[in-house]
Write a protein that binds this DNA or RNA. Structure first.
Lengths: 342, 342
DNA sequence: CTGAAAGCGCTTACAG
DNA sequence: CTGAAAGCGCTTACAG
């Protein structure tokens, strides 16, 4: 009833367990090859009893698991926000296939209504994987710091700065992308820009604002006004836009993009005739909107792939300095931007 | 430089390795509890040297991994068709979280340009997981048969019939759903129905046709004509529809749904005035179409969740008879169906 | 060309 | 309450 082990094969084939191991792994351990006759006997015996090596035992003996982990700092594992996470996961899978790794989703660390934790009872629960890809907004920076000092190999998808720890990450080059957007708007004649974000104190948002300024600051008559959307706290956006004669608004994420569109619609502000709007992340055509959004397309699968490549090099010890990689975004001109009204 | 082991903790705390194990697992192995003082010493020692048990060693010793695998019979792991697979994966993750399992994606079994194989060198590569969820169209039925005779626990997402093997599966109840669709069309006055499929010799398609007939056969004047879309072989659909005065067409998947719509458009057949069309799977609003599709919504996350529930019961040995579970679909009346023209 | 044995890092009866 | 030891199923130097 128990599944067969190496020992069963060895006995049936009349050889030692070491020999079975070597035949099945094709490895000869730096020795003369194993005789064809022996090989055949072992293979036959294995096939006969339906033997398959226990990968857990192999992992323990070899000390390498060939598994990359995926850990998500979010309330639940990608589900409601699956549109956001799955493109990254796609890339992770692609890369894993290419490099002959399996992918382990750390779902065990999620408990109801609580953020997932790497350390449970102060113990690192990630050791099943050789290394791990991190995603998610609700980063626990202390855990990352600790993981880093333990030399556990990991790569964050997204920029995270941890004091005293140079961690590895792969991220969209928001600064360059936003600069491209800003230049586009400037070229269309816009000079008074608005910048809408949900949370300002977050690395990606910094990068976007910074990118915007690198362009705008070249035009003395141009300016950027920043709006922070809190809970219900966007009531004065329309007012301010009108008062300050803002003609173009950059929104950092799709929720603020949609909100902004709705606010303008309610105020009878026409898009793009009166005001141009850009979404600084991937935005799909929305039926209720009826316009192709001008946006920054993020190559999320590409980022996932890159993150795994870096991670595996890390695992293999091929990297000494920390990797902080920027991936280009793609500017997509849509129908929500137009020339500055005169 | 090496990561600390149980032995290191034991020495530092001045206790035996078994004691460390018990303290850390909270298990007392049917004995009097471990003294508070000892507990504290062990915990402190562990924290001090940053010890975390090696999960691989734990798995080997315990013989249980708490991992559910996911294996996809498709050329590549969900990527191009990610829209199709990811909703299932969402459900799998949800269920795994609830039951405290991790999820392992078997990407190692995918090699370029070849279908993935469970058995490599005639050895089952799935043993890392306690059991496995299967998905994908390009099922290798021989592998499933073998897996089943080896008593490896698995659940297929989709119906697969294997001679002499009653396997476990969870599937959309296409028969009931299609019957609902057929009734809807009959109620709208349609009597001559068309049924379009890409491959007819596939379990889900059988179920759909069967469901259609259970309704249509109650109406003596009603009939169903079946069309099989091969490669480029749908040229006569329009012709036949006109000749036979077919007024409603059921399409088994979204690709045949889209193709049918295009063919009708080219022939100046109006939807739904002249012909009603239904998609027998989840169909999104398509901008080029401009109509909300009448379709059968599939609760894919729900199926993923159910599949994991069944799998874990299987692993725990709580199930004796094979489980073949039907999940209800949801009929969504859209704009591509209307009353039969008179 | 092959066997015997140590080792991977845990858990769990079994004695004390 | 704790220690010593066997065992989980492999791999890999080391002898022969």
């Amino acid at each position: 009833m128990k599944r067969p082990t190496q020992k069963d094969v060895a006995e049936l084939a009349g050889v030692s367990r070491g020999t079975v191991s070597m035949v099945l792994n094709g490895s000869t351990n730096g020795r003369v090859p194993i005789s064809e006759e022996t090989r055949r006997r072992v293979l036959e015996a294995a096939a006969k009893i339906g033997y398959a090596p226990n990968p857990v035992a192999q992992m323990l003996a070899k000390g390498q698991n060939h598994i990359v982990g995926v850990f998500v700092y979010a309330d639940v594992f990608p589900y409601a926000q699956s549109d956001y996470y799955f493109p990254y996961l796609s890339g992770i899978q692609q890369s894993a296939i290419r490099q002959n790794y399996n992918v382990l989703l750390f779902t065990q660390n999620h408990h109801q209504d609580a953020l997932p934790q790497v350390y449970e009872n102060s113990m690192n629960t990630l050791r099943l994987a050789d290394g791990c890809i991190f995603m998610g907004q609700k980063t626990d920076r202390e855990e990352l710091a600790r993981l880093h000092s333990e030399n556990y190999p990991f790569v964050y998808v997204g920029r995270r700065e941890i004091p005293n720890h140079e961690i590895n990450y792969v991220i969209n080059d928001y600064a360059a992308g936003t600069a491209e957007v800003a230049q586009h708007l400037i070229d269309l004649g816009h000079r008074k820009l608005g910048f809408v974000a949900n949370l300002i104190n977050f690395e990606p948002e910094y990068d976007k604002i910074r990118g915007c300024h690198t362009v705008v600051d070249n035009y003395p008559e141009a300016s950027v006004t920043t709006f922070s959307f809190g809970k219900q706290q966007h009531a004065d956006l329309v007012e301010q836009v009108q008062q300050k004669h803002i003609t173009a608004v950059l929104c950092t994420d799709d929720s603020s993009f949609i909100t902004t569109l709705k606010l303008f619609e309610q105020a009878n502000i026409r898009i793009p005739e009166d005001v141009s709007i850009v979404c600084l992340t991937t935005a799909e055509y929305d039926q209720s909107l009826g316009l192709q959004p001008t946006h920054l397309y993020l190559n999320r699968p590409g980022i996932g792939e890159k993150a795994v490549e870096v991670l595996i090099k890390l695992i293999d010890g091929e990297l000494e300095s920390p990797q902080q990689i920027m991936m280009p975004t793609v500017f997509v001109a849509g129908e929500t931007t137009g020339p500055c009204p005169t």
